[in-house]
Design a protein around this nucleic acid. Structure first.
Lengths: 233, 233
DNA sequence: TACTTGTCAAGAGCACCGCTCTCGTTTGTA
DNA sequence: TACAAACGAGAGCGGTGCTCTTGACAAGTA
């Protein structure tokens, strides 16, 4: 991403135009949603012919993928920034900061949120380039949980035993993401992460319509319960 | 829905053809997803011309809406049936039955699931006809929670006070859905419902890719935690 | 029975879409 | 300076949702 400045004039104008296309596309996405994103319309708005855009993005899906990566990156940066200013020992506060920042970004950019957390658009396979930016927020959550665990905070849990396959999955997750965390911590982290996105999706996709009016207050209240369940409170 | 049998032959053949269109559309939806549903393709498969389909569904969105209602109805029926055979006093088992039935329907019909719990289709506002079938599963959850509460089971909760606006929203929900339940119960119910859909969406939309391999085992394990948090265990 | 009314399938057509191919032109480099 | 790569423009293919008109036919009415 942080290439050195392109040397030739051609490369510079190419990088600029690539960015301009993405920018126009992002505006169209915000206005009409992913289905309303049209390469021809982007080209029209840029005063070029539709086939010229294909010099920069080989297909509509590739353009969408670029927007997906940008969206992941943007929301991850927001969450990271919000979490970083909270007192380190305030674990619940840090969780709330991540969650609130995520929700606020989602409310401000609903179509981009739908792009990454709604139904997948281009067939099914998310390209490899998306997995790193997609992991930012989960990593934040794991870090908070790890530090809380080090401070002796542990989540409540049920007494049933954990199936071997689940244990194996979580061990793999532990090895590549959070060596300090126990199975129960990791399971709780997955639960909390899906809970967070579930709440935001419910709000944005209309499943709380006629039920909740003050979404923000409701969200923050529920997240205190989530923090409690995580043993952070 | 349960209209009396159509009296005239014209009305009968019309009802039949309407159903046939929905059936073909559902097959296309299952095969290609909502974006791949094409009125022309449906017409082609039925051996009619595209304009003829518009005699039965005034637009593509109307056809999609019909499929959405059917999907809500189908998953609601599955969950209801699964829950009804569990011993009444086994509250956690009833929750698990609802959840597992929902997940299994979703896994078997991913595109229909995405239609109702994924990103809303662009420019589409859920018509009133969808709200009743959409309420089936939430009502089930509330009923389980209400009976559990009557049996003295109460969910854990955090100590913070509930904002007045949240209380007001929940009171409205209580009055029209579950008179016996306290604010904390209702909040927990909303949390569990969004948690359930969050878990299924994570699985189907690929957010647990490379993390979880045995989705079903993971799902059931996590749901026991949810049941515990709800005070059902 | 004769006639009006309404429903229907069909076809042509509009404006749009993603995408491909070709054709000159421009640009960076060997 | 010569050449290959990159580029924008344009035409065109097959597809989409949707509209409008036309003619055939069925249903209800005088």
């Amino acid at each position: 991403m942080a290439d050195n400045a392109p040397r030739t004039a051609r490369a510079r104008v190419r990088a600029e135009l690539t960015n301009e296309i993405k920018q126009v596309a992002r505006r169209q996405l915000a206005a009409e949603g992913s289905a309303g994103l049209s390469l021809r319309a982007v080209a029209r708005e840029l005063g070029m012919v539709s086939s010229a855009v294909y010099r920069y993005f080989p297909s509509r899906d590739e353009l969408l993928t670029a927007l997906i990566v940008d969206a992941y990156t943007a929301v991850g940066a927001r969450a990271t920034a919000a979490e970083s200013v909270v007192r380190r020992a305030d674990f619940a506060g840090r969780l709330l900061a991540v969650a609130t920042a995520t929700r606020e970004w989602a409310v401000a950019n609903p179509h981009e949120y739908a792009l990454i957390f709604g139904s997948p658009v281009p067939g099914y396979a998310a390209p490899v380039t998306t997995i790193d930016p997609a992991a930012v927020i989960p990593s934040l959550l794991l870090a908070i949980l790890a530090e809380a665990a080090a401070a002796g905070r542990v989540p409540a849990d049920h007494a049933g035993r954990m199936p071997r396959v689940v244990h194996a999955d979580l061990r793999r997750l532990r090895e590549q993401a959070a060596p300090q965390l126990s199975d129960r911590h990791l399971a709780r982290a997955v639960l909390a992460w899906s809970q967070l996105i579930g709440l935001i999706s419910f709000e944005l996709f209309g499943h709380l319509h006629n039920v909740i009016t003050d979404y923000q207050a409701h969200f923050e209240y529920q997240l205190r319960t989530v923090a409690e369940d995580l043993g952070l409170a």
